[in-house]
Design a binder for these strands. Structure first.
Lengths: 115, 115
DNA sequence: CATCAATATACCCCTCTGGTTATATAACGG
DNA sequence: CCGTTATATAACCAGAGGGGTATATTGATG
């Protein structure tokens, strides 16, 4: 199964995943919350489902869509070799600070990004 | 600056980044190693450069392209909230196994994926 | 200065995809 | 049964972008 980059390239799909991060959603709920047409949401959900990023549970005419994080874990794995490139710098800084125990230290920060 | 998903959606660009993960490269070298035309490589490098994923150092007519991992760190940050979804399961498994020390254990598997 | 080497850009074509509107499908309520 | 609700799909359109070939640019070299 290929990596889900093309899926995540679409901002609409990222918004959908953002919703599903909180809880399972109905199609209509998503369309309403994201202020977009129902066919538009359905089409994207089709793509996400084909790629294994979501699963569906039917309940009468309702369809509960649930996030399936495995493909994102694959993406995470793909990132691994690149991750060294920026963690190494932080590690180096850490080691450096350790050699200067009398220097006042700053705490590292982390920024979250929303698309 | 937007997340680099659209950039990574293209397999050619991922191959280029794969090269740059090892060392800086010249345009011609990449074109040769990836067996594609030079304009094709140049075009993708333009996109990558505009998005801040690579930097260039000129040396006569040569152009050394260097990977710049910061945008990938942004992507990593974007993944963070989703990462909980699969690490929690592993953590739960871990805790579970800790409570049953006499039960024979199976090893978990991990699949690596290449694009 | 003429030529060659390395790279960037222009232009054209063609496919892919995301959006819209209209319609099909299917299950519920009266 | 009949209308209504929830969702999926079809048909169509417009724009984006990736690929190729040709050409511009810039620096080295004899």
């Amino acid at each position: 199964m290929p990596l889900p980059f093309d899926l995540l390239a679409d901002p609409t799909r990222r918004r959908i995943l953002g919703l599903l991060l909180r809880r399972p959603y109905l199609v209509g709920e998503m369309a309403h919350e994201l202020e977009m047409s129902q066919p538009r949401v359905s089409k994207h959900l089709r793509v996400l489902r084909d790629a294994g990023l979501v699963t569906v549970r039917a309940e009468a005419q309702r369809r509960w869509y649930v996030l399936r994080p495995e493909p994102l874990a694959d993406l995470d794995a793909w990132l691994a070799p690149y991750r060294r490139l920026w963690t190494e710098r932080l590690d180096a800084l850490e080691r450096h600070l350790e050699t200067m125990p009398d220097t006042p230290m700053e705490r590292s920060r982390h920024a979250a990004e929303e698309s």
